[in-house]
Protein backbone atom coordinates (compact mmCIF):
# COMPACT_ATOMS: atom_id res chain seq x y z
CA UNK A 1 0.00 0.00 0.00
CA UNK A 2 2.67 2.45 1.11
CA UNK A 3 4.72 1.49 -1.91
CA UNK A 4 1.91 2.22 -4.32
CA UNK A 5 1.25 5.57 -2.71
CA UNK A 6 4.84 6.70 -3.15
CA UNK A 7 4.92 5.66 -6.79
CA UNK A 8 1.82 7.73 -7.43
CA UNK A 9 3.27 10.72 -5.65
CA UNK A 10 6.50 10.39 -7.52
CA UNK A 11 4.99 10.55 -10.97
CA UNK A 12 1.63 12.32 -10.97
CA UNK A 13 1.99 13.29 -14.61
CA UNK A 14 2.59 9.73 -15.70
CA UNK A 15 -0.38 8.63 -13.66
CA UNK A 16 -2.62 11.21 -15.25
CA UNK A 17 -1.46 10.09 -18.66
CA UNK A 18 -2.17 6.49 -17.79
CA UNK A 19 -5.65 7.34 -16.56
CA UNK A 20 -6.37 9.24 -19.74
CA UNK A 21 -5.23 6.26 -21.80
CA UNK A 22 -7.74 4.23 -19.82
CA UNK A 23 -10.61 6.10 -21.51
CA UNK A 24 -11.91 2.99 -23.22
CA UNK A 25 -13.85 4.77 -25.93
CA UNK A 26 -10.89 6.74 -27.24
CA UNK A 27 -8.82 5.32 -30.10
CA UNK A 28 -5.26 6.49 -30.67
CA UNK A 29 -4.88 8.94 -33.55
CA UNK A 30 -8.62 9.33 -34.18
CA UNK A 31 -8.72 12.78 -32.63
CA UNK A 32 -5.84 13.96 -34.82
CA UNK A 33 -7.52 12.64 -37.98
CA UNK A 34 -10.83 14.28 -37.02
CA UNK A 35 -9.18 17.64 -36.49
CA UNK A 36 -7.21 17.28 -39.73
CA UNK A 37 -10.44 16.57 -41.61
CA UNK A 38 -12.16 19.64 -40.17
CA UNK A 39 -9.17 21.81 -41.05
CA UNK A 40 -9.00 20.34 -44.56
CA UNK A 41 -12.75 20.91 -45.05
CA UNK A 42 -12.61 24.54 -43.99
CA UNK A 43 -9.15 25.77 -44.99
CA UNK A 44 -9.91 26.15 -48.72
CA UNK A 45 -13.18 27.96 -48.00
CA UNK A 46 -11.48 30.27 -45.51
CA UNK A 47 -8.75 31.13 -48.00
CA UNK A 48 -11.43 31.84 -50.62
CA UNK A 49 -13.38 34.09 -48.26
CA UNK A 50 -10.32 35.93 -46.90
CA UNK A 51 -9.03 36.82 -50.36
CA UNK A 52 -12.43 38.10 -51.44
CA UNK A 53 -11.70 41.00 -49.07
CA UNK A 54 -8.22 41.62 -50.50
CA UNK A 55 -7.47 45.00 -52.10
CA UNK A 56 -5.47 43.47 -54.90
CA UNK A 57 -6.01 41.68 -58.20
CA UNK A 58 -4.13 38.70 -56.80
CA UNK A 59 -5.98 35.93 -54.99
CA UNK A 60 -2.86 34.87 -53.13
CA UNK A 61 -0.92 37.91 -51.92
CA UNK A 62 -2.61 39.86 -49.14
CA UNK A 63 -2.29 43.63 -49.23
CA UNK A 64 -5.16 45.38 -47.49
CA UNK A 65 -8.79 44.88 -46.48
CA UNK A 66 -11.22 46.17 -49.06
CA UNK A 67 -14.77 45.63 -50.32
CA UNK A 68 -13.90 46.65 -53.88
CA UNK A 69 -14.56 43.15 -55.32
CA UNK A 70 -17.98 43.07 -53.74
CA UNK A 71 -18.70 46.46 -55.23
CA UNK A 72 -17.44 45.25 -58.59
CA UNK A 73 -19.57 42.10 -58.33
CA UNK A 74 -22.69 44.05 -57.41
CA UNK A 75 -22.14 46.48 -60.29
CA UNK A 76 -21.63 43.63 -62.74
CA UNK A 77 -24.86 43.32 -64.72
CA UNK A 78 -24.12 39.70 -65.63
CA UNK A 79 -23.87 38.76 -61.98
CA UNK A 80 -26.99 40.73 -61.05
CA UNK A 81 -29.03 39.05 -63.78
CA UNK A 82 -27.70 35.60 -62.84
CA UNK A 83 -28.56 36.20 -59.18
CA UNK A 84 -32.10 37.21 -60.12
CA UNK A 85 -32.55 34.11 -62.30
CA UNK A 86 -31.21 31.93 -59.47
CA UNK A 87 -33.60 33.37 -56.90
CA UNK A 88 -36.57 33.21 -59.29
CA UNK A 89 -35.96 29.57 -60.17
CA UNK A 90 -35.19 28.58 -56.58
CA UNK A 91 -38.33 30.25 -55.23
CA UNK A 92 -40.66 28.64 -57.76
CA UNK A 93 -38.98 25.23 -57.36
CA UNK A 94 -39.08 25.51 -53.56
CA UNK A 95 -42.77 26.39 -53.39
CA UNK A 96 -43.89 23.74 -55.87
CA UNK A 97 -41.66 20.96 -54.56
CA UNK A 98 -42.53 21.67 -50.91
CA UNK A 99 -46.26 21.54 -51.62
CA UNK A 100 -45.94 18.32 -53.62
CA UNK A 101 -43.63 16.76 -51.01
CA UNK A 102 -45.93 17.72 -48.12
CA UNK A 103 -48.92 16.16 -49.86
CA UNK A 104 -46.99 12.99 -50.66
CA UNK A 105 -45.67 12.73 -47.10
CA UNK A 106 -49.21 13.07 -45.74
CA UNK A 107 -50.39 10.28 -48.04
CA UNK A 108 -47.64 7.90 -46.95
CA UNK A 109 -47.75 8.51 -43.20
CA UNK A 110 -51.23 9.55 -42.08
CA UNK A 111 -52.98 6.32 -42.94
CA UNK A 112 -52.32 2.61 -42.81
CA UNK A 113 -49.51 1.34 -45.04
CA UNK A 114 -50.84 0.46 -48.49
CA UNK A 115 -49.85 -1.65 -51.44
CA UNK A 116 -47.53 0.33 -53.68
CA UNK A 117 -46.16 2.47 -50.88
CA UNK A 118 -42.66 1.13 -51.55
CA UNK A 119 -43.05 1.98 -55.22
CA UNK A 120 -44.20 5.51 -54.34
CA UNK A 121 -41.10 6.00 -52.16
CA UNK A 122 -38.87 4.65 -54.92
CA UNK A 123 -40.36 7.07 -57.46
CA UNK A 124 -40.09 10.06 -55.13
CA UNK A 125 -36.47 9.25 -54.24
CA UNK A 126 -35.49 8.38 -57.81
CA UNK A 127 -33.71 11.70 -58.52
CA UNK A 128 -31.36 10.96 -55.60
CA UNK A 129 -30.34 7.56 -56.94
CA UNK A 130 -29.18 8.53 -60.39
CA UNK A 131 -25.98 10.44 -61.18
CA UNK A 132 -26.90 14.06 -61.82
CA UNK A 133 -25.21 14.08 -65.20
CA UNK A 134 -27.56 11.32 -66.43
CA UNK A 135 -30.64 13.19 -65.21
CA UNK A 136 -29.22 16.33 -66.80
CA UNK A 137 -28.76 14.97 -70.34
CA UNK A 138 -31.99 12.96 -70.12
CA UNK A 139 -33.94 16.07 -69.15
CA UNK A 140 -32.20 18.02 -71.93
CA UNK A 141 -33.26 15.33 -74.44
CA UNK A 142 -36.90 15.44 -73.31
CA UNK A 143 -37.09 19.23 -73.22
CA UNK A 144 -35.49 19.64 -76.64
CA UNK A 145 -38.05 17.19 -78.00
CA UNK A 146 -40.94 19.05 -76.32
CA UNK A 147 -39.60 22.40 -77.53
CA UNK A 148 -39.28 21.03 -81.05
CA UNK A 149 -42.84 19.64 -81.05
CA UNK A 150 -44.64 22.52 -79.29
CA UNK A 151 -42.40 25.46 -80.10
CA UNK A 152 -42.80 26.70 -76.53
CA UNK A 153 -39.64 28.05 -74.91
CA UNK A 154 -38.91 29.86 -71.67
CA UNK A 155 -37.59 29.59 -68.15
CA UNK A 156 -40.46 27.26 -67.20
CA UNK A 157 -38.41 24.25 -68.32
CA UNK A 158 -35.61 25.12 -65.91
CA UNK A 159 -38.09 25.66 -63.09
CA UNK A 160 -39.76 22.31 -63.81
CA UNK A 161 -36.42 20.49 -63.77
CA UNK A 162 -35.46 22.10 -60.47
CA UNK A 163 -38.87 21.28 -58.96
CA UNK A 164 -38.40 17.60 -59.81
CA UNK A 165 -35.01 17.17 -58.16
CA UNK A 166 -35.99 19.30 -55.14
CA UNK A 167 -38.95 17.05 -54.24
CA UNK A 168 -36.95 14.25 -52.55
CA UNK A 169 -34.96 16.79 -50.52
CA UNK A 170 -38.12 18.52 -49.31
CA UNK A 171 -39.77 15.14 -48.73
CA UNK A 172 -37.15 13.83 -46.28
CA UNK A 173 -37.62 16.15 -43.26
CA UNK A 174 -41.38 16.45 -43.77
CA UNK A 175 -41.83 12.68 -43.77
CA UNK A 176 -39.51 12.31 -40.76
CA UNK A 177 -41.55 14.88 -38.85
CA UNK A 178 -44.85 13.21 -39.72
CA UNK A 179 -43.55 9.79 -38.71
CA UNK A 180 -42.66 11.20 -35.29
CA UNK A 181 -46.17 12.65 -34.87
CA UNK A 182 -48.60 10.22 -33.32
CA UNK A 183 -51.97 9.86 -35.02
CA UNK A 184 -53.63 10.12 -31.60
CA UNK A 185 -53.45 13.93 -31.72
CA UNK A 186 -55.56 14.07 -34.87
CA UNK A 187 -57.92 11.52 -33.38
CA UNK A 188 -58.21 13.71 -30.28
CA UNK A 189 -59.08 16.57 -32.63
CA UNK A 190 -61.79 14.54 -34.37
CA UNK A 191 -63.07 13.41 -30.98
CA UNK A 192 -63.42 17.11 -30.06
CA UNK A 193 -65.64 17.79 -33.07
CA UNK A 194 -63.00 18.93 -35.58
CA UNK A 195 -63.94 17.99 -39.15
CA UNK A 196 -61.10 16.35 -41.12
CA UNK A 197 -60.28 19.74 -42.66
CA UNK A 198 -60.30 21.50 -39.28
CA UNK A 199 -58.13 18.77 -37.76
CA UNK A 200 -55.60 19.36 -40.55
CA UNK A 201 -55.77 23.14 -40.20
CA UNK A 202 -55.56 23.34 -36.39
CA UNK A 203 -53.54 20.25 -35.48
CA UNK A 204 -51.60 18.55 -38.29
CA UNK A 205 -50.41 21.67 -40.09
CA UNK A 206 -49.11 23.65 -37.08
CA UNK A 207 -47.32 20.59 -35.74
CA UNK A 208 -45.89 19.79 -39.16
CA UNK A 209 -44.71 23.37 -39.80
CA UNK A 210 -41.10 22.91 -38.58
CA UNK A 211 -40.78 19.94 -40.97
CA UNK A 212 -42.21 21.95 -43.86
CA UNK A 213 -39.88 24.87 -43.13
CA UNK A 214 -36.89 22.49 -43.00
CA UNK A 215 -37.96 20.86 -46.27
CA UNK A 216 -38.42 24.20 -47.99
CA UNK A 217 -35.00 25.41 -46.85
CA UNK A 218 -33.31 22.25 -48.10
CA UNK A 219 -35.10 22.57 -51.44
CA UNK A 220 -34.04 26.21 -51.72
CA UNK A 221 -30.38 25.45 -50.99
CA UNK A 222 -30.33 22.51 -53.38
CA UNK A 223 -31.90 24.55 -56.19
CA UNK A 224 -29.63 27.52 -55.57
CA UNK A 225 -26.52 25.32 -55.70
CA UNK A 226 -27.36 23.20 -58.72
CA UNK A 227 -24.83 23.24 -61.55
CA UNK A 228 -25.05 20.20 -63.80
CA UNK A 229 -28.76 20.02 -64.59
CA UNK A 230 -28.95 23.79 -64.99
CA UNK A 231 -25.90 23.74 -67.25
CA UNK A 232 -27.66 21.32 -69.61
CA UNK A 233 -31.23 22.59 -69.42
CA UNK A 234 -30.85 26.38 -69.15
CA UNK A 235 -31.49 28.28 -72.36
CA UNK A 236 -29.90 31.55 -73.39
CA UNK A 237 -30.53 34.32 -70.84
CA UNK A 238 -31.27 31.75 -68.13
CA UNK A 239 -27.80 31.78 -66.57
CA UNK A 240 -27.95 31.14 -62.83
CA UNK A 241 -25.28 32.28 -60.39
CA UNK A 242 -23.42 28.94 -60.24
CA UNK A 243 -23.37 28.75 -64.04
CA UNK A 244 -22.03 32.30 -64.21
CA UNK A 245 -19.31 31.40 -61.70
CA UNK A 246 -18.38 28.27 -63.67
CA UNK A 247 -18.03 30.35 -66.84
CA UNK A 248 -15.97 32.98 -65.03
CA UNK A 249 -13.60 30.35 -63.59
CA UNK A 250 -13.08 28.97 -67.09
CA UNK A 251 -12.21 32.45 -68.35
CA UNK A 252 -9.69 33.07 -65.57
CA UNK A 253 -9.50 33.49 -61.86
CA UNK A 254 -10.38 36.92 -60.42
CA UNK A 255 -11.13 38.10 -56.86
CA UNK A 256 -14.59 39.02 -58.15
CA UNK A 257 -15.41 35.29 -58.33
CA UNK A 258 -14.31 34.97 -54.71
CA UNK A 259 -16.70 37.75 -53.74
CA UNK A 260 -19.72 36.21 -55.51
CA UNK A 261 -18.81 32.76 -54.18
CA UNK A 262 -18.59 34.13 -50.64
CA UNK A 263 -22.06 35.62 -50.96
CA UNK A 264 -23.48 32.32 -52.24
CA UNK A 265 -21.72 30.34 -49.48
CA UNK A 266 -23.03 32.87 -46.94
CA UNK A 267 -26.62 32.31 -48.05
CA UNK A 268 -26.23 28.51 -47.80
CA UNK A 269 -24.54 28.72 -44.39
CA UNK A 270 -27.25 31.03 -43.11
CA UNK A 271 -30.04 28.71 -44.27
CA UNK A 272 -28.34 25.57 -42.94
CA UNK A 273 -27.65 27.24 -39.59
CA UNK A 274 -31.33 28.24 -39.40
CA UNK A 275 -32.27 24.69 -40.31
CA UNK A 276 -30.18 23.37 -37.43
CA UNK A 277 -31.91 25.70 -35.03
CA UNK A 278 -35.36 24.71 -36.32
CA UNK A 279 -34.49 21.04 -35.96
CA UNK A 280 -33.17 21.48 -32.44
CA UNK A 281 -36.39 23.18 -31.48
CA UNK A 282 -38.27 20.33 -33.11
CA UNK A 283 -36.50 17.82 -30.90
CA UNK A 284 -37.65 19.60 -27.76
Amino acid sequence: MADLATTHDAAPAARARKLKARDLKAMPGFKAIAWACIVALYLPLIVLIVFSFNDNRSVVKWTEFSLRWYQAALENEGIRNAAWVSVKVALVATILSTIAATMAALATTRAAAFKGQGLAYAIINQPLMIPEIVTAIATLSLFSLVKYVTGITGIGYLMAAHTAFCIPFAFMPIRARLEDMTLTLEQAGADLYATPLQAFRYITLPLLMPGIVAGAMLAFVVSLDDVIITLMVAGPGETTLPIYILGAIRRGITPEINAVSTILVGVSVLLVALLFLVQRRMEK
Binding site: L96, A100, M103, A104, A120, I123, Q126, I130, F165
Partner: peptide
Amino acid sequence: LLGPAVLIILLISILP
Protein backbone atom coordinates in the same frame (compact mmCIF):
# COMPACT_ATOMS: atom_id res chain seq x y z
CA LEU B 1 -52.07 13.59 -52.33
CA LEU B 2 -49.44 11.41 -53.98
CA GLY B 3 -50.41 12.53 -57.47
CA PRO B 4 -48.45 15.77 -57.90
CA ALA B 5 -45.10 14.55 -56.55
CA VAL B 6 -45.23 11.23 -58.37
CA LEU B 7 -46.43 12.82 -61.60
CA ILE B 8 -43.73 15.52 -61.59
CA ILE B 9 -40.96 12.99 -61.05
CA LEU B 10 -42.41 10.50 -63.54
CA LEU B 11 -42.66 13.20 -66.23
CA ILE B 12 -39.49 15.18 -65.57
CA SER B 13 -37.10 12.59 -64.21
CA ILE B 14 -38.15 9.09 -65.26
CA LEU B 15 -39.75 9.67 -68.67
CA PRO B 16 -36.53 11.42 -69.85
